[in-house]
Design a protein around this nucleic acid. Structure first.
Length: 894
RNA sequence: GCGGGUGUGGCGGAACUGGUAGACGCGACGGAUUCAAAAUCCGUUUCUGGUGACAGAGUGUCGGUUCGAGUCCGACCACCCGCACCA
């Protein structure tokens, strides 16, 4: 019977067993005393402080910096451990490694905490950072803390304001009105993600769609560049590149101007411009649809109360995706008619439709029901004609019909006059060619146009805890930039959070300034920047964190792009796209000389845990649950009540489901090395890993095993110099070590940490038996053993640095293993002289052949045919074929 | 709807460009050590049949290419993720 305590009673008290048996040399490894000692040793040696003057080749490894939300959680731990393994490995390989850490410290949670706890956001944030910094330090990460900063440091946002002004000067910043989600209770703009079912996520108020003057970065100037450069980002996951491609959303089409029928048009309006990617379907058009915000819709609504009501209704529905998704497709006939560009006699109605977006294309479309499902639904609803114009190749034009499903694939043109019989691609060209040459009031009727889905980046937030936008509003001079010498625009510290809305607006003095141009009374911009701005260049700042200017150009050029960036897939689009834009902007403004910030990108999986739920629906934390495996299957019981609880699915660790295990719980019981080792074991790093107590215990078991292996070998290898054994009885020891060294190296280079760990396990297994008799072994064997132990220690060092140091010290190694060079494997030792070839008969494995590695094909064939089981299978006949794949396999075809 | 990914023992997962399927770990079972336990060590562990050597089956399903398929091709099924009134 096994009843395992699942956290509730605390971890098994392993520290009581400092000495296992009287007379036995090896004590158990005690991470609680060992880990802090080595952390201190590293710090005193300033081992991880990186110098910009170091001449060696650079390697920049960076993990996405954390938001100081309260405590480090286990997901952070996994992320930073991965980066740390790479950093420590590259350092051992002789690179000058930059591995910094900082804090993405502006944002709403600090304001929320301020409102709830009556502390200033600044105070709360720095307190939180202090706690989290200590937690990170417990992990034994090889970080250069001398470069640490938080984005809310005045020093940092000062330089960000400098960048903003430079961007502004270069024309990369613009101010325009745009539609936003406005929460009327909290009196602030909400991001789309913050609108849930049309309501503000905090206030629960119905969100309004409002027009507001906002600051924007002109990321769309770079649409084409940002898209094309994705092809060159070979160190990025294809998935992320694809997501960015889709997000940028390039499409090629035609912008076509349709003349309005004079007596139906509002005064002064003569034409309607639409964008289409399918000009080939122009003879299938049966209606025009325009956005509710389209100028023509507004004008038409002026004299039409019913239409005005419809337009108002569309606007109220809001802009959030969730609302749009469920809204029924509706239209309203404006009474306006347009003439077909190829046939002045043919007129089509203009509808205002709730599914047309003002933000994309021209805010107007022509509807071709036969070729677009949405248009088809619309046409059926309002009784509009449906004329098929493209049919699949081989279909019969006379009988081809559209019923409930539109045909949007490629095909052959029908019912399209001069286009009939062409492919739809040819028809596209033909329509474009003709309309480009026709004119309407002196200009071409149509123009080829490339459209992007990407929109400019709105950075205005009506918040306090963010980087102030360094602009001033003057009644006389308009919007005036704050002169650089007046920077930084500092956030005030005395802030009142009693009322909703932006506290900067209400501050008694902060916003009142003199206009830098005319010295009249003027007002500061009270919007602050989106926190994504802060994270769009922090990786550059790390290269010269104390510089007066935002960057030191040469230093930035030397370190960047980041060789290996590691973080969550959730940032695949926004953060990474913004950073790519920002880097381009910084190049434009002379702060650096490259376009792409991240050469290698790795997106790691989440840490997940089972969920537990009591009968009454309460979520239970792992520490409140006892797991019982004594009966049939696993059962879980609530510790407090003894009642059985439901074991639920694996979920990302979250407070709401209480399925969290904190990094402290682990480090305090098993130590940081166990957490690090377990986190990278088993699951590939880009997939989710399930945190289990058994797994953690297993990782800790391995630590003790390595410690014992090294400790027991130590006396026998103390007085020998390390040397590989090429032949003789000790050769297997050296071969095992060198093979492992080669493979682990390759695995780490590929970030295949789970495979590297499996290989290290294997090496420990292979050393186990020969090390049992080491005390009586000859000198050559002990030399080989010493070398193997040193290799083993180097292999575990990136993963379990504390244990590695302790082992290094135990064998009398010189200095710190964290500061020593990676060993080199001997190519002669990673190949075997004798190889075992599997032998197949008709593709099924029937046995093995052991033969010299150099044996040629003929020799192999001869040896194979001489094998008992082969002769038996052939039964005297000669084989039809013998396939010998050198050093791989032999297949005899009978 | 569009785009992408994944599917291998009881579980997490290995398997480089087609070449011994199941490395390594977890769990389980058996044994050693112990007065007993903890810890540790040794062994077994894809399934079916057989005491056994061995035989047969087996990488979501069906089919194909090949001397040989987890890997390549075609169709399908399931799950996961991203985007989505994009004209």
């Amino acid at each position: 019977m096994t009843v395992s305590a699942n956290r509730g009673e605390g971890p098994p008290n392993i520290f009581l067993f400092l000495c296992e048996k009287p007379g036995m040399a090896t004590e158990r490894y005690n991470p609680r005393t060992s880990e802090p000692r080595w952390q201190k040793a590293w710090e005193e040696a300033r081992l991880f402080e990186t110098s910009n003057e170091d001449e060696r080749p650079t390697y920049y490894v960076l993990e996405m910096f954390p938001y100081p939300s309260g405590r480090i959680h286990i997901g952070h731990t996994r992320n930073y451990t991965m980066g740390d393994v790479v950093a420590r490995y590259k350092r051992a390989k002789g690179f000058n490694v930059l591995h910094p850490m900082g804090w993405d410290a502006f944002g709403m949670p600090a304001e929320n905490a301020a409102m709830q706890n009556k502390v200033q956001p600044k105070e709360w944030t720095y307190q939180t950072i202090a706690v989290m910094r200590d937690q990170l330090k417990m992990m034994g990460l090889s970080l250069d803390w001398s470069r640490e900063f938080a984005t809310c440091d005045v020093d940092y946002y000062h330089r960000q304001q400098m960048l903003f002004l430079d961007f502004h000067e270069k024309g990369l910043v613009t101010r325009k009105t745009s539609k936003v989600n406005w929460d009327p209770v909290d009196r602030t703009v909400l991001a789309n993600e913050q609108v849930i079912d049309g309501r503000g996520w905090r206030s629960g108020a119905l969100v309004e769609s409002r027009e507001l003057a906002q600051w924007f970065f002109k990321i769309t100037d770079y649409s084409e560049d940002l898209l094309e450069a994705l092809d060159g980002l070979e160190g990025w996951p294809e998935k992320v590149r694809l997501m960015q491609r889709n997000w940028i959303g390039r499409s090629e089409g035609l912008s076509i101007r349709w003349p309005l029928v004079e007596d139906t048009a509002p005064h002064g309006e003569q034409e309607l411009e639409v964008y289409t990617t399918r000009p080939d379907t122009i003879f299938g058009a049966s209606f025009m649809a325009i956005a509710a915000d389209h100028p023509l819709a507004r004008k038409a609504a002026e004299g039409n109360a019913e239409l005005a009501a419809f337009v108002e209704e569309c606007r109220r529905v809001g802009t959030s995706a969730a609302v749009l998704e469920t809204a029924e497709k509706k239209g309203f006939d404006t009474g306006i008619r347009v003439r077909h560009p190829f046939d002045p006699e043919w007129t089509l109605p203009v509808y205002v439709a709730n599914f047309v977006l003002m933000e994309y294309g021209t805010g107007a479309i022509f509807g071709c029901p036969s070729g677009d499902q949405r248009d088809l639904d619309f046409a059926r609803k309002y009784g509009l004609p449906v004329v098929p114009v493209v049919m699949p190749e081989g279909a019969d034009a006379a009988t081809f019909q559209i019923a409930d499903e539109a045909y949007s694939d490629d095909g052959v043109m029908i019912n399209s006059r001069f286009l009939d019989g062409l492919s739809n691609d040819e028809a596209f060209e033909e329509v474009a060619k003709q309309l480009e040459h026709e004119t309407l009031s002196g200009r071409p009727v149509a123009e080829r146009k490339v459209n992007f889905r990407l929109r400019d980046w709105g950075i205005s937030r009506q918040r306090y805890w963010g980087c102030p936008i360094p602009m001033i509003h003057c009644d006389a001079c308009g919007v005036v930039p704050v002169p650089k010498e007046d920077l930084p625009v500092k956030l005030p510290d005395d802030i009142d959070f009693e009322k909703p809305g932006n506290p900067l607006d209400r501050h008694p003095t902060w916003r009142h300034v003199k206009c830098p141009q005319c010295s009249a009374d003027a007002r500061r911009e009270t919007d602050t920047m989106d926190t994504f701005v802060d994270s769009s260049w922090y990786f550059v700042r790390f290269t010269a964190p104390h510089a007066e200017t935002p960057t030191e150009r040469d230093v930035a050029n030397r370190w960047l792009p980041v060789d290996q960036y590691i973080g969550g897939i959730e940032h695949a689009i926004l953060h990474l796209l913004y950073s790519r834009f920002f880097t381009r902007g910084m190049r434009e403004t002379g702060h650096l000389d490259f376009a792409e910030p991240f050469k290698g990108l790795f997106t790691q999986g989440m840490v997940v845990h089972e969920t537990y739920r009591a009968e009454d629906g309460r979520w239970l934390a792992p520490s409140e649950v006892r797991i019982d495996t004594s009966g049939e299957g696993r059962k879980a019981f609530e510790v407090a009540t003894g009642r059985e609880v439901t074991v639920g699915s694996l979920e990302k660790m979250s407070k709401s489901k209480k399925n969290t295990v904190s990094p402290e719980e682990i480090t305090e019981s098993f130590g940081a090395d166990t957490a690090r080792w377990f986190m990278l074991s088993d699951s590939p790093p880009d997939r989710d890993v399930e945190w289990t107590d058994d797994g953690a215990a297993g990782a800790h078991r391995f630590i003790q095993r390595v410690w014992r292996l090294v400790g027991e070998a130590a006396p026998a290898i103390a007085d020998v110099t390390p040397a590989a054994a090429r032949d003789g009885g000790a050769a297997p020891i050296s071969k095992a070590a060198h093979k492992a060294l080669k493979v682990v190296e390759e695995d780490i280079e590929q970030l295949a940490f789970n495979r590297a760990i499996a290989r290290i396990h294997q090496l420990a297994n292979e050393l186990q038996a020969p090390f049992g008799t080491l005390a009586e072994a000859d000198r050559a064997t002990r030399s080989a053993a010493r070398e193997a132990v040193e290799i083993l220690i180097h292999l575990i060092a990136p993963f379990m640095p504390h244990l590695a140091e302790e082992c290094w010290a135990a064998i009398g190694g010189e200095g710190l293993v964290s500061a020593s060079a990676w060993p080199q494997y001997d190519p002669a030792l990673v190949v075997d002289d004798l190889i075992v070839l599997p032998v197949q008969i008709n593709g099924k494995k029937r046995g093995d052949l052991t033969i010299a590695r150099e044996a040629d094909q003929a020799a192999v064939e001869k040896a194979v045919l001489a094998l008992d089981f082969v002769q038996k299978a052939l039964n005297g006949a000669s084989p039809r074929r013998v396939i010998v794949v050198p050093n791989r396999i032999v297949n005899v075809v009978a």
